[in-house]
């Protein structure tokens, strides 16, 4: 009286009520793997499809930023003083507010989303380039957090004993740090130090690297805790026991047997981390400790624009909207992925 479930497909966590269990068992008997089921569910999910398309578009914007900016012909760092016909772009007597356009933003057929007050840099171009910064930092930070979290969690859960005790305490301590404050305080300090120690100039390439590192470094502990818990239960499962009794070493068991079973968790966590790091990068740049001038970042743009909120609200609106749409799209997709991978979802 066995069920037609192989280890790899059997869902994590018990199915609560008996009648649910009965129907769920019936489902698995059809023999589709969790990955296939999740994929089939995702394809049916209109919101998932829509947000995936938006995310692909955003990625395309980031990748092809130089090409896109060629379309309107204004490099993101170029200070513009006049329109093509020679008329002034900025009202120099009035603190440099753009002349004309919607709500005093300087929008025109040349500058589609208007120009920055004072400097006259093109908002569209800066927004397009800001996409790069956002995605790069978020992706880098996510990869660092996932790698550290997975390795620490697996090692902790697999070896147990004093290794586990040590690493678990480390996780506790990492989780006790007020991380935003730390990230905020450390980013300029580390960037500064990079300059002193290695002679790397404190430019925005270094800043982006530091941001990725700091975000990742303060973000892995929670994932490590989850991974540890799952590893602890996975290592007791029959297929791991069997492999070990046949002489498989820890490396083989950890990477070939435990890691594949953690993939759904890691996938879900990745889709959750990316938008939160996009927000974090924007927040840090907004506070003035992230990306600095002249590189454009959405957070930086919002901080600049906040000074002009009364005279030129659109300048604030565009980077805000870009940030919101990006984060929303990632969150929507992440939610759909999580639901699709949840063995309990939609089963009665």
């Amino acid at each position: 009286m066995t069920l037609g479930v192989t280890e790899a497909q059997s869902p994590e966590g018990g199915l609560p009520a008996d009648h649910l269990a009965e129907t769920a068992e019936a489902k698995q008997i059809e023999g589709r793997s969790l990955g296939q089921i999740a994929w089939a569910r995702l394809k049916k999910d209109k919101i998932a499809i829509a947000s995936a398309i938006i995310i692909l578009l955003i990625i395309a914007v980031a990748v092809f930023a130089p090409l896109i900016v060629k379309l309107n012909g204004f490099p993101p760092d170029q200070f513009n003083k006049t329109n093509a016909d020679g008329s002034p772009l900025l009202n120099t007597r009035d603190g440099g507010i753009p002349i004309g356009g919607l709500w005093g933003s300087g929008t025109s057929s040349e500058h589609w989303l208007g120009v920055e007050p004072q400097n006259g840099r093109d908002v569209f171009s800066r927004l397009v380039y800001g996409t790069r910064v956002s995605l790069l930092v978020a992706l880098g930070g996510t990869i660092i957090a996932i790698v550290i979290g997975t390795v620490v969690g697996m090692v902790s859960g697999y070896f147990r004993g004093w290794v586990d005790t040590l690493l678990s305490r480390l996780m506790d301590i990492m989780l006790s740090f007020p991380s935003l404050l730390f990230v905020m305080a450390l980013t300029p300090v580390i960037a500064d130090r990079g300059q002193d120690l290695f002679g790397i100039p404190d430019d925005n390439k270094l800043r982006m690297g530091v941001l990725m590192f700091v975000l990742g470094f303060f973000g892995w502990a929670y994932l490590a805790r989850i991974v540890r818990g799952q590893t602890l239960s996975l290592r007791e499962r029959e297929f791991v026991e069997a492999a070990r009794s046949l002489g498989a070493g820890p490396g083989y068991v950890i990477f070939r047997q435990i890691l594949p079973n953690l993939l759904p968790t890691l996938l879900v966590y990745t889709t959750l981390l990316i938008p939160s790091y996009i927000t974090a990068e924007a927040a840090l740049s907004f506070l003035g400790v992230g990306i600095k001038e002249p590189t454009s970042s959405w957070g930086r743009m919002i901080a600049d624009a906040s000074d002009w909120i009364e005279s030129n609200p659109l300048y604030l609106f565009f980077p805000g909207l870009a940030l919101f749409i990006t984060v929303l799209a990632f969150n929507l997709l992440g939610d759909s992925v999580r639901d699709a991978l949840d063995p309990r979802a939609g089963r009665g």
Partner: peptide, 22 residues
């Protein structure tokens, strides 16, 4: 809730500030 989670504080804060104060 999903909307709320996706609203970065810097965007939402300035939105409120713009709407109700400005």
């Amino acid at each position: 809730a999903l909307f709320g989670v996706s609203f970065p504080t810097i965007v939402f804060g300035y939105l409120l500030l713009f709407l109700f104060i400005v």
